[in-house]
Simulated scan of single mutants.
Amino acid sequence: MGRVSGRSCIVTGSARGIGRAIGEALLDEGADVCFADIDSASAELAARENEDRAQRNGGKVAWAGVDVTKREEVRDMIAAAVSAFGKIDVKFNNAGINKPMNLLDVTEENWNAIMTVNGLGVLIGMQEAAKQMIAQGNGGKIINTASIASRQGFDNVAPYCASKWAVVSLTQSGARDLAKHGITVTGFAPGVVATEMWSQLDRDLMEIGASEKEGQAMAEFSADILRGRVATPQDITGTTTFLASKESDYMTGQVVMIDGGMVLV
């Protein structure tokens, strides 16, 4: 039996990158997984490409298109997962965005876009998942994606840092409020991970003059990683599967750093 066999999970932002790796690792350990993303076509593709993986390990797979800032769409996503699996045990609030700007150039539009997805999107995801879990009456797990930027402010990405500090606060507040329902709320904080999001970040930093050539910003930013390299998505999934499993049942309100020793807290 896998570590999460019989558990039904939703992972937002899972069409690619860390989110997809989280979903695939859960499938490897026997879970049912709903791949959810604002890019509905890619979410469907992720699910279809993982059908064999699910069957091999005794789980099921589903998909949903969702804008995590729209409550009705989040409700529809949860309803679709419940229809496919019969219940929801674990909800990963993983969807997030970033758009670097120099601090003095940050606009209200930039601030609001990042805070709405990364902050409000997590709040709505927590609320709607918790309502379903409470109705089911068997508790559950909510797991939020934070960042090294939730523990230390970095230049060029102030709104993103603020949004990820918000994720930590929401995780702690949710843990306190939902404990009486048997729902735990935890989080994890990746560092530099070799995904398309980080590649785009590298290009964006070039555009605002923070670096001169492709790859420079990522190389400089990751130079202090104690493990000596950037992460792969698979470096993250051992922890995320643990957080979704029974092994973490006595853990709540905590955010686990998975950054190779870049930020020590």
Rank of each mutant, 00 (worst) to 15 (best):
191 G>Y: 06
204 D>Y: 08
229 R>N: 11
230 V>C: 09
143 I>G: 06
92 F>D: 03
239 T>E: 13
158 A>K: 02
186 T>R: 06
215 G>I: 09
5 S>F: 08
91 K>M: 14
123 L>W: 10
146 A>C: 04
134 I>L: 13
189 A>Y: 11
109 E>A: 07
74 V>F: 07
137 G>I: 07
16 R>A: 11
28 D>A: 15
158 A>Q: 06
153 G>I: 01
23 G>L: 04
244 A>M: 11
264 L>Y: 15
54 A>Q: 01
210 A>V: 06
174 G>W: 02
153 G>N: 02
150 S>P: 01
81 A>V: 02
128 E>A: 07
256 V>F: 14
215 G>Y: 07
96 G>E: 00
252 T>L: 08
99 K>C: 09
187 G>E: 00
265 V>D: 15
87 K>T: 13
136 Q>V: 09
112 N>R: 11
50 N>E: 14
181 H>P: 06
68 V>W: 00
12 T>Y: 02
159 P>L: 03
179 A>H: 06
63 W>H: 01
233 P>I: 01
60 K>C: 08
256 V>Q: 14
171 T>N: 05
137 G>P: 07
57 N>Q: 10
180 K>G: 13
1 M>W: 10
115 M>L: 08
11 V>Q: 02
1 M>C: 10
110 N>W: 03
153 G>T: 07
186 T>E: 15
195 T>W: 10
35 F>P: 00
242 F>P: 07
37 D>Y: 04
215 G>F: 12
45 L>M: 15
58 G>D: 09
180 K>F: 11
47 A>Y: 03
248 S>V: 09
209 G>A: 13
135 A>I: 05
105 D>P: 02
197 M>F: 12
55 Q>R: 15
102 N>Q: 14
65 G>S: 03
32 D>E: 06
13 G>T: 00
72 E>P: 08
138 N>T: 11
83 S>F: 08
192 V>Q: 14
2 G>A: 01
88 I>K: 00
44 E>S: 10
259 D>K: 07
10 I>A: 00
107 T>E: 07
184 T>A: 04
162 A>S: 11
152 Q>C: 13
62 A>C: 15
48 R>D: 14
137 G>F: 03
239 T>D: 14
76 D>G: 09
29 E>M: 09
262 M>T: 06
41 A>E: 13
166 A>H: 08
168 V>F: 05
103 L>I: 14
42 S>P: 07
89 D>H: 05
113 A>R: 09
31 A>R: 03
186 T>S: 12
120 L>H: 00
145 T>Q: 01
47 A>S: 13
117 V>A: 00
106 V>N: 02
12 T>V: 02
138 N>P: 07
131 K>I: 11
32 D>L: 00
132 Q>V: 03
90 V>G: 01
9 C>I: 12
89 D>I: 08
138 N>D: 15
